[in-house]
Write a protein that binds this DNA or RNA. Structure first.
Lengths: 337, 337
DNA sequence: GCGGATCTTGTTATCGCTAACAATGCATCG
DNA sequence: CGATGCATTGTTAGCGATAACAAGATCCGC
C-alpha cells in the first residue's frame, strides 16, 4: 500500500514503532513517574524518528484545557500598551503558553465584549484584558464566571485580579521633582479623562501640589497625542507665569517642546518639563526629557503570575499587584529663571 | 439530580433541547443548505437559550484544521513591526481567524525556529513570519512543506509568498525630493546592514544619486535607534558641506535633529532632513519631519490575503505583493543656503 | 396512483488524545 | 512458598465535533 498521503504521525504510530501501547507514549509525553527508563528512551527515540508532534486539539478536547492565553488589547501603537503586549508574550512563552491576541479598534464596551467572545470561542485557558478605560471594564461585568481573568490598568475598585502601575505615585514623583527645583507650581497637560491612567496621574499631580501647599492651576486637557501636547504648548507658551509643566505622556511632551521652541520659550531655561512613559526616544528630545518610567516588564510578569495562579490552583481569590514607577532624570528640568 | 457542576453545554445538549439530532445542530452551525427553515429556527433558539458555544478543539480534531494563524514577530516596540502586527490582527479577526503571536527576543535563526516550532505545535492553519533580516529567513529553510506561509519584509529572492514594502522606491522618493530642492548631494544614515529594509533603502538612495549624476557620499551606518541618529548627527554637524541627510527611519532623524540643534545647525535652514516610517509624532519634531510613509495596513491586508489563498485553495503558488510607499511633505526640507 | 428524484433527518464511525481501570511481572515478607 | 504490594504496561471508554452513509418524508412526472 502506498502511504504517500503522509498525514502527520499520531500517537499510535509512535507506539507501534516503539513496540508499546499508545498510553505508554502518552505517559512519556506527560512525564508520568512510572515508566521504565529503557521504555522511556525507546519511546523518545521513536518520537524523534517520526518527528511526532502531539495534537493539541485532541489534548484540549479530552482535558478541557488549552494552552492558550487570550489577550485583549487596543489596536494601538501607543507605546505603553505595545510594550506591555510584547513583554507579556515573552513571559507567557517562557511558561509554555501561547498567546492569542484580540485587537480592538476602540475601547468601547461592544468592541471589548466582542474580543472577549472570540477568545472564549477559542476556549482560552485564561484571559488578560488591558482595560485602561471605564467602558472596557464595564464589558467585563457579565463575563461568565470560572474563566481566569486578569485586568491590567483596570479599575482598582473592581473585584478582578488586577495589575496596575501606580500612576498617582509616578505623577507625584514628577510634580515633586519640579517643585524641588524651586518652581512655585506645576501645570499639568493630562490624558483623556476616561482613562484610569490619566485620572491617576491627575490625582497624583494634584495631591503633590496640595501637600506642598502650592496653588493648583487649571488642568489642561489632552488626549495622549503629540498634537494635543502641541496645542497645550501653544497656549501655555503665552503665559509667562508658567515655568513648569508635567505632561501625561512623553509624546505630549514632544508636542509641547515644539510649541515652546516655536514661540521662543526655552526648555529648561524658561520652562521645565517632565513627561511620563520613558519612550526610547525620550533621551533624544530637545532637550532630553526627564520622565517617569513604568516598568512594563514587571507589569507583564505580574499579570502572568496572577493568571497562572488562577489557572492552576483554581483560586478565584482576587489579588492585585501595584507596580511603582521611577523617575528618570535628564535635562528638561532646571530652577526657574 | 443536581446539575450544579455546569460544564459548558455541548452539541448534544442543544440537540436534546431542540428535539433533533446533534448532526442537525452541526448542519445549522455550518450553514448546510438542506435544513428546514423551521428546524433551523428551533435549533438557533436552543443555541441561544443554552448559550452554546461550539468547541473549537473538537472541530479542529475532526477536520484537521484550526482557525488560528500564527504570527512570528520580533518582540519589539519598533514602530514598523508594531504597526504591522496590530494591522494584521485586525484584518485576521475580520476574516474570522484568531492570531497567535510568537514573539522572539532576537531575530536569530534559533529564536525564529523555536517560535515557528511552537506555532506548529499549535497546529496553526497558516504562518506569517515578519522576517526583516537574513538570519530570520534562513530559519525558514527547513520548514515542513504544506504549511501555508507568508513572509513579510523577507528576502525577495526566496520562493515563499511574500509581502514587501518597496524600500528602494521610498528611498528614491526621499533622495529625489532633497535633490529637487537644489542640494548637490544627499547623505544617508542607514539602518543595520543585515536588515533587508535597510539594504533596500541604501540601494534606493544610491540609485537616485547615481541617476541624477550626483556624487555618492560615504554611508553613515546606524541601527534604527535615536541614539545612532544622534551619533551620526554629531559627526555630520561638523561637516559644512553636508546640507541634506536622509535617515533610514524617523527615530534616527529625531536623534539627528537634536545633534544638529545642539551644534547650532538649523534645520531646514542649514541642513535638510528626510526620515522614513511616518511615526505619529513625526509631525511634532522640531521642525516637523518630511518623511516616507509605508502603508502598514496595506501590507497586513496583502499578507492575510496571500495566506488565506494558500489556506483555502491549496495553491502553493508563490506570490508576492509589493507595496509602494509615499512621501509626506512637512517642514524639514528647504533649498540649500 | 406509482416509481424515482429530492429534501430532510438520523445513525454510526472516527479524529488523537487522556483518564480510569485491569492486568502483568517481580520483589518482599511472614 | 504463597500472599501482598508496587512498578510497569495494556485495554477500554469517552471528550465534542464532522463525515459518510442510511432512511424516511415529500414531491414530481407520467
Amino acid at each position: 500500500m502506498d502511504v504517500r498521503a503522509t498525514r502527520s504521525p499520531a500517537m499510535t504510530d509512535v507506539a507501534r514503532l516503539a513496540g508499546v501501547s499508545h498510553q505508554t507514549v502518552s505517559r512519556v509525553l506527560n512525564d508520568h513517574p512510572n515508566v521504565r527508563e529503557q521504555t522511556r528512551l525507546r519511546v523518545r527515540a521513536a518520537i524523534a524518528e517520526l518527528g511526532y508532534r502531539p495534537n493539541r486539539a485532541a489534548r484540549a478536547l479530552v482535558t478541557g484545557k488549552s494552552q492558550l492565553i487570550g489577550v485583549v488589547a487596543q489596536n494601538s501603537t501607543l507605546y505603553g500598551p505595545a510594550s506591555l503586549l510584547a513583554a507579556f508574550e515573552q513571559a507567557a512563552a517562557e511558561a509554555g503558553f501561547a498567546v492569542s491576541v484580540g485587537s480592538v479598534g476602540r475601547l468601547d464596551r461592544e468592541s471589548i465584549a466582542g474580543a472577549v467572545e472570540r477568545h472564549l470561542d477559542q476556549r482560552v485557558a485564561g484571559l488578560v484584558v488591558i482595560a485602561p478605560v471605564a467602558s472596557a471594564d464595564d464589558a467585563l461585568e457579565d463575563m461568565p464566571a470560572g474563566v481566569p481573568l486578569v485586568t491590567i490598568d483596570g479599575d482598582p475598585r473592581r473585584p478582578h485580579a488586577l495589575v496596575i502601575v501606580d500612576q498617582a505615585a509616578g505623577a507625584r514623583l514628577a510634580t515633586q521633582r519640579l517643585l524641588a527645583a524651586g518652581h512655585r507650581t506645576v501645570w499639568h497637560v493630562s490624558g483623556p479623562a476616561d482613562w484610569y491612567d490619566a485620572a491617576g496621574r491627575i490625582e497624583g499631580w494634584r495631591a503633590a501640589l496640595e501637600d506642598a501647599g502650592a496653588e493648583v492651576p487649571p488642568l489642561v486637557p489632552g488626549d495622549w497625542s503629540a498634537a494635543s501636547g502641541y496645542d497645550a504648548g501653544q497656549m501655555l507658551a503665552r503665559m509667562p507665569e508658567v515655568t513648569a509643566v508635567f505632561t501625561a505622556n512623553d509624546h505630549q511632551a514632544l508636542g509641547l517642546l515644539r510649541a515652546f521652541s516655536e514661540r521662543g520659550r526655552r526648555v529648561p531655561g524658561d520652562v521645565s518639563v517632565v513627561g511620563f512613559d520613558d519612550v526610547p526616544e525620550a533621551a533624544f528630545f530637545i532637550p532630553p526629557l526627564t520622565t517617569v518610567r513604568p516598568d512594563f516588564g514587571a507589569v507583564a510578569h505580574a499579570g502572568l503570575d496572577l493568571l497562572l495562579a488562577q489557572i492552576t490552583a483554581e483560586t478565584t481569590t482576587p489579588d492585585r499587584v501595584v507596580i511603582a514607577p521611577t523617575l528618570v532624570e535628564r535635562a528638561s528640568v532646571a530652577p526657574p529663571a
